[in-house]
Amino acid sequence: MSISLTELWVILGCGAITVLSRVLPFAFVKSLNMPAWLISFLSFVPITIMTALCCESLFVAHAGHLATLNVANCLAAIPATLAGILTKSLLMVVVVGIMAMAVLRYFAIGG
């Protein structure tokens, strides 16, 4: 159990940066009336950010070159998506996804 001065500063500094990124918008929105265009812009945040987060794990980045597919993740995403379409249950998507990935790893498919 030890912590260096640098580590302490990193924890406190990054903690402050993160909490401010999260909290300031709440204080801002609470105290101001938002213009219509901003509300319209924000209505697209959920679908765009979730799509981008999915893409983050479906693509493999190569600096300076076009990305390639993360084959294992893309393959496991198929049964996971089907589970979502069939059951509309988040839990089933997660469970089927984990099982699909375990099977892929067991047979060493997709790297």
């Binding site: 999915c54 479906l58 993740n73 998507v93 997660v94 699909a100 892929l104």
Partner: peptide, 15 residues
Amino acid sequence: GFDFALTAMFIGLVY
């Protein structure tokens, strides 16, 4: 396969 849980969750949420 537990590392895929997070990706699966976002797939479920986006769907």
